[in-house]
C-alpha cells in the first residue's frame, strides 16, 4: 500500500465533496464522495488502503462538520475493511459490479452512523429512507463514473500519445 496515493485520494474526494455540495446545500441532493473514495481504494488497493482512506477522510469530515469526531471515521473504516475483504474474496472487476458495491456500502455506512448517533443520544431517530435512497443512487453513479474513468484512462493516454507522435518517428531509419 502506498500512503501517498491514499492521501491524494482523500484530498481529492474531500475537495470535490465540499465543492459540489456547495450547489446542493440543504439536503435535496445527498452524496458522499469520501465514501466512494473508500470503496474505490478498498477494491483497487486492498483493505488496508480502504481503512486508511476511511479513517483519514472520515475524521476530516467529522472535523469539518459539527458532530462528534470519530463517528464518520469509524463507519468509513468498517466499510473500508469490509469492502477490501470482499475484494480479496471475490473478483469484483466490472464497473457496474463495483458501483453495486458502492450502493451496498452506502446503506451499511448510513446504518452504522445512525446507530452510533442513537447510542450517543440514547434516542432512536430512525432512518430517512428517501434520503438514503438518493444518497445510494448518487454514490453509485459517482462510483460508476470513477471506475469507468480508471478503466478507460490508460487506453486514452496510450491513444493520445500514439496520436501525438509525429509520422516520422514511426519509421525506422
Amino acid at each position: 500500500m502506498k500512503f501517498g496515493r491514499v492521501l491524494v485520494t482523500v484530498l481529492v474526494a474531500l475537495t470535490l465533496q465540499l465543492a459540489l455540495a456547495r450547489y446542493a446545500v440543504g439536503g435535496r441532493w445527498v452524496f458522499d464522495l469520501v465514501l466512494v473514495a473508500v470503496v474505490y481504494g478498498a477494491l483497487l488497493w486492498g483493505p488496508a488502503a480502504g481503512m486508511w482512506i476511511g479513517t483519514l477522510g472520515g475524521l476530516m469530515q467529522d472535523a469539518l462538520s459539527e458532530d462528534v469526531i470519530g463517528v464518520g471515521g469509524f463507519a468509513k473504516t468498517v466499510v473500508g475493511f469490509g469492502v477490501g475483504g470482499l475484494g480479496l474474496q471475490f473478483l469484483v472487476a466490472r464497473p457496474l459490479a463495483r458501483a453495486s458495491v458502492v450502493a451496498v456500502a452506502t446503506v451499511l455506512h448510513r446504518l452504522i452512523v445512525v446507530g452510533l448517533w442513537a447510542t450517543a443520544d440514547q434516542e432512536w431517530k430512525g432512518v430517512a429512507w428517501t434520503v438514503l435512497l438518493m444518497e445510494t443512487g448518487l454514490n453509485a453513479a459517482a462510483g460508476l463514473a470513477a471506475f469507468h474513468l480508471t478503466q478507460m484512462l490508460p487506453g486514452v493516454i496510450q491513444h493520445t500519445r500514439a496520436g501525438c507522435r509525429s509520422p516520422l518517428s514511426r519509421r525506422r531509419w
Binding site: 474531500l14 465533496q17 465540499l18 465543492a19 459540489l20 455540495a21 456547495r22 450547489y23 446542493a24 446545500v25 440543504g26 439536503g27 445527498v30 452524496f31 458522499d32 469520501v34 476530516m60 469530515q61 467529522d62 469539518l64 462538520s65 459539527e66 458532530d67 464518520g72 434520503v131 444518497e135
Partner: peptide, 10 residues
C-alpha cells in the same frame, strides 16, 4: 463550500 458530510448542514 457545502456539507462536508451528508446530513451535517454546515
Amino acid at each position: 463550500a457545502g456539507d462536508p458530510a451528508p446530513g451535517a448542514f454546515v
